[in-house]
Design a protein around this nucleic acid. Structure first.
Length: 995
DNA sequence: AGATGGGCCATTTTT
DNA sequence: TGGCCCATCT
């Protein structure tokens, strides 16, 4: 490596392997690495490197990511280093958004109407449903949809998987055909079509990517066949590709992602430089250990190395709770405990609750709401899918594209115009039959030039004409002006729409309960549109580079782009200048959490049926999903499982098979004691400064549960006792539970908290949301706690010794590994394990990559043997012990995270803003009439209001009846206490309507 | 006949 | 939470 390279600031933030990846001169580079190893950072740095050192023009680089979030984050990072000018020129986005850009610029070459719209999920579903119904196809529309999508996603270069069972339902093909025809008539592309058509474009018209020097792909393990094709085609001019991925984190198989694309890459590009990143900078060692235990149950997986950089940390927790409601309450109490016990070091922003399915959020949300904790919800229901927003979008779509029958069908009777479903259906059918658009059908009918066969009462016709058709025509002409005249903004178009529909009134009459909230969302929508206009005015990010002798269409209207953005982003981004910086807990689906990290992570509902999901087809993928969830955690990881599902007593629940084999050994049964050594350990991992003991203690309210002892560790279902008439299943549960019951509470180093659980308490518990009283058995006095601390401190020295030894091992391991980093990343494949060693000599083509895998496999197997490492299930260190201490990362060994990166890490730890898609706190709670305290909301016109937030949550200080619930019968509340309590109970309110 | 309102159901993951 | 079915109202 040259001196110049060492000097380069980009490289300073990289470890050796990362640096190799960034600076590699190989045309194709494959970076495979586990969670937390700095993949994205490496990819970003490589982009910078290619621009600064290799001299590629930013506009000649394509970076494809899998999610919008990832794209945005990378964009930001690159912008920081290269400046916004460069950042703007790089073609960076999700596959879909990049495809859309190329299609709208060059689509005419494949006969595509440049004004195409995007059919979102709901559109496709509706279309297919209608087709199935009309033709009486005997197929489940959902199945048909998945089948069609799979067909499209397969791509071309995939060897036909040659389904022997070709005799598929012939109506599937028929349905497929009809579906495509319908889309074409409406000038729509569905998500898959974007990719399919883009492949077609790049094939038939390679000139439009003739400028491209280098293609980089993030989250490569999630690419599907068609995306693979796309990648190759984008790179067709220079064949330079860099991919980053981790097979263990492949969680989109259901979307036809193929891990096999990894082989394909190596086969298609034999010169590929393979690099593995093995250090994990994110998580404590014990989190990694347990995560590995989970993922290693998958025998078919590529083995790979994950070297912890951090200390052991606290043992992850697997908590059993009585019910999902108790689970929510427990999470609340544990969040509070952690945050309190860490002084100001941790905030709600550092906490994430990760769910297999969005629907699981209900209990959690209500628990958080009850406790008055603010949260944001990622994934699940999206802002743009809210009813009131969808209608507006449909209006806009009709304005943009009147031939969009589906959109029209949805708005004909919204607001109500006395035209019911039956009539609409008939109209749609009539339009379809005559292969005309619903729009022209209606228009002609109302103009009298062509009478519709469907009966339309004069009254209806009248309203249709004045309230719908005229309105649309009007707005269409206004929309026309938008393209010509930038001053005329998209926002005023929407405002006009709102006023002509009298939308506010519509909401009021339609949603008696929560119309203010919905109107509020509409306001939010307006400011989003406003942001969009503003951003796209100075940032022409959409523009593709000019290529000599290649024309591109540029009549993309802002309305069209806005709609595409909505369809593809499906995520409303919060604006930077969102003023209020109140810390929010994050609730997210696991899928949406990919690539992110938090100091504290909860994974609730770890039961069979939830994860693995009952409808999941691929168990291994479900396991990887759990693995992804667990590896999001930096310092504290909690899994939990209710004994009974939310449906009430009827549904008992089994612990997920992914963790049950080692539930009692690998996990702690309850949250750790936050004694000083543990606190220090966490602080070290996060690279934050721990407040002094005194500072922390001064802030702990009295009557605060210092331990995780508000809920029974081994929840006994009281219904067993009270209600013997319960379902059969209940009883059989008994013996099973014993398994988690073993030594009751805690192990040696947690002696301080050891006390028998008192049963009657468990019934009281449900009512005590999270605060406990001195008289309760779970209470630990400050004195007791202090003792525990000293005891633990003594244990600390011991633990440090162990940690030191541990480090030594790791260190030598790393050094030894370094030389063969050239191999395939230490992956072992089943394939290679099964097949005999590679035959010697001139391999080429497909065999080549296989041979390489085999080579890598044997090498890595040898290495593992040499290190006496990990049998199938590595024995987990039993200590949840704090291995805290003076772990000297700074002593200059390889493990030390380079400076730049450390900073970045800190930043992402404490300041990272997570994207907010939507947030739906529980409805204003029961009897809380707080809404009147709310400040009035800005009125309808929004000159330049930034889109600050989509949260319905707003905070007011505690009311007398605020979030804190006390167990009944404990006497009057401790008056003074309330003043000292650092956590003002927050209350969720809703905004009042603007006067 | 067709529009509308109430009650009951189930509900993966995402571009 | 929305989607779907049934009863009632226009």
């Amino acid at each position: 490596m040259s001196a110049a390279q060492v000097e380069n600031p980009i490289l300073k933030s990289l470890n050796a392997a990362q640096r190799r990846a960034v600076t590699s001169n190989a045309p194709t580079v494959a970076i495979l690495a586990g969670p937390g190893s700095g993949k994205t950072h490496t990819l970003t740095s490589r982009v910078v490197w290619l621009v600064e050192q290799t001299g590629y023009k930013p506009s000649d680089i394509v970076v494809a990511t899998f999610t919008v979030k990832a794209a945005r984050e990378m964009k930001e990072r690159i912008g920081k280093i290269l400046g916004s000018e460069c950042e703007r020129k790089i073609v960076l986005g999700t596959f879909h958004s990049i495809a859309r850009r190329y299609l709208s610029a060059y689509g005419q070459h494949i006969g595509l109407d440049p004004k195409f719209g995007i059919a979102d999920d709901g559109d496709s579903r509706a279309i297919i449903q209608r087709i199935c119904k009309r033709h009486n196809f005997n197929i489940d529309p959902g199945f048909a949809r998945a089948w069609i999508s799979k067909n499209k996603a397969k791509g071309h270069s995939t060897e036909p998987v040659s389904n022997k069972k070709q005799p598929e339902n012939p109506s599937l093909n028929e349905c497929y055909r009809e579906y495509q025809e319908h889309l074409e008539r409406s000038n729509l592309l569905d998500y898959d079509d974007l990719l399919v058509r883009c492949v077609e474009l790049l094939r038939t018209y390679p000139a439009c990517v003739s400028n491209i020097q280098s293609v980089l792909i993030d989250e490569y393990q999630d690419t599907n066949g068609i995306q693979y094709d796309l990648m190759k085609l984008f790179a067709q001019a220079r064949q330079r590709i860099t991919i980053v991925g981790d097979p263990d984190q492949s969680i989109y198989g259901w979307r036809s992602a193929e891990i096999r694309n990894l082989y394909r890459l190596l086969r298609d590009y034999p010169e590929t430089d393979e690099i593995s990143l093995e250090e994990n900078y994110r998580s404590s060692q014990s989190i990694l250990d347990v995560s590995l235990t989970v993922i290693q149950q998958d025998k078919k997986r590529y083995q790979k190395v994950l070297l912890p950089v951090h200390t052991r940390g606290t043992k992850p927790v697997l908590r059993m709770l009585k019910s999902s409601a108790a689970e929510g309450d427990w999470i609340v109490s544990e969040i509070r405990r952690a945050i309190t016990m860490f002084g100001n070091m941790l905030s709600y922003e550092d906490v994430a609750i990760l769910l297999r399915s969005a629907s699981l959020s209900r209990n959690i949300e209500s628990a958080l709401g009850k406790a008055g904790l603010a949260y944001r919800m990622i994934g699940g229901h999206k802002f743009y899918e809210r009813k009131e927003i969808k209608v507006l979008l449909d209006y806009l779509r009709v304005i943009y594209q009147p031939e969009n029958n589906d959109a029209i069908a949805r708005i004909i009777n919204v607001p109500r115009r006395g035209i019911g479903d039956t009539t609409i259906k008939r109209l749609v059918e009539e339009a379809e039959q005559h292969k005309m658009s619903l729009w022209s059908l209606l228009r002609k009918h109302c103009q009298g030039s062509r009478k519709a066969a469907t009966k339309i009462l004069p009254k209806m016709e009248q309203r249709l004409n004045t309230e719908l058709i005229r309105l649309i025509v009007n707005l269409q002409s206004q929309a026309q002006q938008i393209t010509d005249n930038t001053q005329q903004s998209l926002v005023s178009l929407i405002e006009k729409l709102l006023s002509q529909l009298d939308f506010k009134k519509h909401l009021e009459s339609e949603y008696l309960e929560d119309h203010e909230q919905r109107w509020q969302n509409v306001q939010e929508f307006l400011s989003l549109a406003n942001d969009f206009v503003r951003d796209s005015a100075n940032v022409d990010e959409e523009l593709l580079p000019e290529i000599e002798n290649v024309d591109q269409a540029k009549d993309d209207s802002i309305l069209g782009r806005f709609l595409a953005n909505v369809a593809l982003a499906s995520d409303a981004q919060k604006n930077d200048d969102g003023v209020e910086k109140r810390p929010l807990i994050t609730i997210s689906t696991i899928h949406a959490a990919k690539g992110l990290e938090w100091p504290i992570v909860f994974v609730p509902a770890v039961y069979a049926g939830s994860i693995p999901h009952s409808r999941a087809e691929d168990l291994d993928e479900e396991r990887r999903l759990l693995y992804v969830a667990m590896t999001r955690a930096q310092a504290l990881l909690y899994l939990s499982c209710p004994l009974y599902g939310s449906q009430g007593m009827g549904t008992k629940v089994e612990l997920s098979p992914f963790v049950s084999p080692f539930a009692s050994t690998a996990f702690a049964k309850h949250g750790a004691s936050f004694n000083r050594p543990i606190l220090e350990g966490v602080a070290k991992i996060l690279g934050r400064e721990l407040p002094s003991e005194k500072a922390i203690f001064d802030k702990i309210p009295s009557m605060f549960a210092l331990e995780d002892n508000l809920f029974p560790v081994d929840p006994i279902d009281t219904r067993d006792a009270e209600d013997s008439g319960g379902p059969e299943g209940l009883r059989s549960k008994g013996p099973k539970r014993q398994r988690f019951n073993c030594q009751g509470y805690g192990n040696e180093e947690e002696a301080a908290e050891e006390r028998p659980w008192q049963k009657e308490y468990s019934t009281t518990m449900e009512q005590a949301s999270s605060f406990t009283m001195a008289s309760l058995p779970g209470f630990v006095s400050a004195g007791t706690h202090q003792n525990a601390l000293t005891a633990a401190a003594a244990a600390a020295a011991e633990a440090e010794k162990a940690a030191a030894a541990n480090r030594k091992v790791i260190k030598s391991g790393t050094t030894r590994r370094r030389p063969d980093q050239t191999s395939l990343l230490g992956f072992v494949t089943t394939l290679s394990a099964k097949k005999p060693p590679a035959p010697a000599g001139g391999l080429s083509g497909p065999d080549m990559s296989m041979a390489r895998y085999q080579l890598a496999a044997s090498r890595s197997a040898a290495r593992l043997a040499a290190e006496e490492k990990a049998p199938e299930l590595p024995k987990l260190p039993d200590a949840s012990g704090p291995s805290l201490g003076k772990h000297k990362l700074a002593s200059g060994n390889v493990l030390n995270r380079p400076n730049g990166m450390k900073q970045e890490n800190e930043e992402s730890g404490s300041k990272k803003r997570y994207h907010c898609f939507s947030s739906s706190p529980p409805r204003q709670d029961e009897d809380e009439p707080v809404k009147d305290e709310q400040t009035p909301v800005e009125s309808a016109s929004i000159p330049d209001r930034p889109a600050s937030s989509f949260h319905k949550t707003t905070f007011v200080s505690a009311t007398a009846r605020g979030g804190v619930r006390r167990p009944v019968g404990l006497g009057p509340p401790p008056g003074l206490d309330r003043l000292r309590r650092p956590f003002k109970p927050l209350t969720i309110t809703r905004p009042t309507k603007p006067q």
